[in-house]
């Protein structure tokens, strides 16, 4: 186990370096002068440009620039953005918001997705099953920005059940509707995954054994079949956390949430390279760690998986 974790951590290093280098190269390949717009309406003074280029090593070849940048990141210094604010401070704030949003979306997946999947699985071929299958298919096929805009309009504007936009405080109540929107696609996947696995496991030999042991149907299905069916579902949900952090950009845009996605998007638009690279680097590192944790969790959930 310990060896496995060490090996995985070592494997992560080249991945982090490669990923951040690609991001770095793309960001600094963004067209336009990186100092444009830094000095208001006017052209920046010569001295400022020189200082800026010096500070971000823009006159070095790309790999050197990148190496110098990563040298700082390793020391915990993500640099400062255009407004002179520490990117690290920005990221802490932004990740707190997006992280909460993603966690709430996960909660929605667990509550709605798993229960719908179980209901459909144990009533395979019946009305509930078809209802779940059709409605999940509808959710999967409607793009998230349409779902977001429509729910925002009907539940927020029309019925006034939810706040239409999220303030900078981003309270749990304000984040509820965005979380439902963000999680909607995954809810559909979770429901279908739960259903498929449950249906398959209900036919497994060990469920037949459970029945022949004289266990109640409830226990045979609810404990024996479900415990096995949940392994891939929980793994999916775990991996989804990393994906939701990076995929929250559309939802954050619709509901005006001050999260990571919006931060990166704005950064790209105003060519704030330091901010973009810092945020994406943090995203990737979180993503990789979450995946490692999920892989370890998989070993706990399924005793047949060995991490030795």
């Amino acid at each position: 186990m310990g060896k496995y974790i060490v090996r995985r951590l070592l494997q992560m290093i080249p991945v982090i370096i490669g990923t951040t280098f690609i991001i770095y190269a793309m960001v600094f390949a963004l067209p336009g002068d990186p100092t444009a717009g830094k000095c208001g309406e006017r052209q920046c003074p010569e001295s400022f440009v020189a200082e800026y280029r010096e500070k971000y090593n823009l006159d070095d070849p790309l790999p050197i620039q990148y190496a110098k940048y990563m040298g700082q990141v390793v020391q915990g210094d993500f640099g400062t953005n255009q407004y002179g604010v520490e990117v690290r401070e920005d990221l802490a704030k932004r990740f707190a918001v997006t992280g909460r949003l993603a966690l709430m979306a996960i909660a929605v997946e667990i509550v709605i997705g798993i229960s719908a999947g179980i209901l459909a699985g144990i009533r395979k071929g019946r009305f509930v099953d078809n209802l779940v299958l059709v409605s999940t298919l509808v959710v999967i096929s409607i793009p998230i920005f349409v779902i977001g805009a429509v729910l925002q309009y009907f539940l927020g504007v029309r019925l006034g059940l939810f706040p239409v936009t999220v303030s900078s405080e981003a309270t749990t109540y304000e984040l509820l509707l965005p979380a439902i929107v963000l999680g909607s696609l995954s809810v559909a996947y979770v429901a279908r995954l739960t259903r498929t696995n449950l249906v398959e496991n209900l036919r497994a030999d060990y469920v037949r054994t459970a029945i022949s042991k004289g266990l109640s149907k409830r226990r045979a299905v609810g404990l024996h079949a479900l415990r096995n069916s949940m392994i891939p579902v929980i793994t999916f949900i775990g991996f989804d956390f990393g994906a939701l952090l990076g995929g929250a950009i559309v939802t954050e845009g619709i509901f005006n949430i001050q999260g990571v996605g919006g931060y990166i998007y704005r950064g790209i638009q105003v060519r704030d390279g330091v901010a973009v690279v810092g945020a994406v680097t943090a995203l990737v590192i979180i993503y990789l760690f979450v995946n490692l944790i999920v892989d370890l969790l998989y070993g706990v959930l399924d005793p047949r998986i060995s991490h030795d």
């Binding site: 494997q11 990923t19 991001i23 793309m26 995929g247």
Partner: peptide, 18 residues
């Protein structure tokens, strides 16, 4: 692994902006 770790939507946005 390297390319898999880049969020698809963010990467595409970056690419289109570049």
């Amino acid at each position: 692994d390297i390319f898999f770790a880049i969020p698809l939507l963010l990467g595409a946005i970056l690419f289109m902006s570049a």
